[in-house]
């Protein structure tokens, strides 16, 4: 069987669904949901150790070990290039030199919209410092191309605002981005339910990253498996090459010959 793997920075992944590890009820739910999603790449955040907490309390990495998953440290809640760079340098040290990272620099605490100017600045520093940067960005195709030119290994445009669940609001911009960049385009932010993920894949996106869509579902583990199916279905539909859309086609799916004559009234 042909492998249709996702290739990021020369490494191959069979899952095109990437999942965040935040907002779950507890570690048990986190683990169960990640497992159900089939995700191989999972994002983590870097935060101050809570000194004085129970030293025997389990760590996130105990249940999601680097030996089993590709951990993608993020720069969530960073508002400047400097903060993002510092955070990722700490993350790289934490993960023994692992250099595949997610860059995100926010511009506004209410909308969590990315600050693309600071993002570009951070990307330049990080790429020069040897990081493999998967960059969260707006759906501006010019910025996306600039980020690729800087050397980012994946472009991750938002579908809609982080945590909003509004789905793909601008498929045309996503298409513009995919027309212009060679590196994988992974929709990140705004996915709300399975069809959103399927639509992203049908458009030709290489993968989808989500967190709230699963964690904030009534049944996260069930939603995680729905998302796995949706990403696979969307990808297969894309590879199958959909039929064209037409206003009308006069093209019935049933034969036009051999229709019985109308009964005499």
């Amino acid at each position: 069987m042909n492998q249709d793997n996702l290739i990021i920075a020369g490494k191959s992944y069979s899952s095109r669904l990437l999942v965040g590890t935040g907002k779950y009820k507890d570690f048990a739910e986190t683990q169960a949901a990640i497992e159900a999603s089939g995700a191989e790449i999972i994002t983590i955040a870097i935060r101050r150790s809570n000194i004085g907490q129970n030293p025997n309390e389990p760590n996130l990495l105990d249940i999601l070990p680097p030996s089993k998953y590709t951990l993608l440290p993020n720069t969530a809640m960073c508002y400047s290039a400097d903060e993002a760079v510092r955070t990722l340098r700490l993350a790289r040290e934490l993960l023994d030199g692992h250099s595949l990272v997610k860059l995100e620099v926010l511009g506004d605490p209410q909308s969590l919209y990315p600050n693309v100017v600071e993002t570009i600045a951070a990307a330049k520093t990080l790429v020069k410092d040897g990081f493999q940067v998967m960059v969260y960005t707006s759906d501006d195709p010019i910025i996306a191309k600039q980020l690729e030119d800087i050397g980012c290994v994946a472009i991750m445009p938002l579908a809609s605002l982080i945590g909003s669940g509004m789905g793909i609001l601008n498929p045309w911009n996503l298409q513009l981005i995919m027309d212009r960049v060679q590196v994988p385009v992974i929709v990140d932010a705004g996915v709300g339910t399975a069809s959103d993920a399927a639509i992203a894949m049908e458009l030709g996106c290489h993968g989808v990253l989500m967190n709230t869509a699963i964690a904030a579902a009534q049944k996260p583990v069930l939603m995680a498996s729905a998302m796995k199916l949706a990403v696979n279905a969307g990808r297969a539909a894309y590879l199958a090459g959909r039929m064209p859309r037409k206003l009308y086609s006069a093209s019935s799916s049933s034969p036009t010959a051999g229709i019985i004559a109308p009964a005499k009234s």
């Binding site: 965040g20 590890t21 935040g22 907002k23 779950y24 986190t30 994002t43 983590i44 955040a45 870097i46 935060r47 101050r48 150790s49 000194i51 760590n59 996130l60 990495l61 951990l71 440290p73 993020n74 969530a76 700490l90 993350a91 934490l94 993960l95 982080i162 945590g163 989500m210 967190n211 709230t212």
Partner: peptide
């Protein structure tokens, strides 16, 4: 000093 760990995040 900043001492950090990995935690859940999106």
């Amino acid at each position: 000093l900043e001492i950090v760990v990995a935690v859940g995040g999106g």
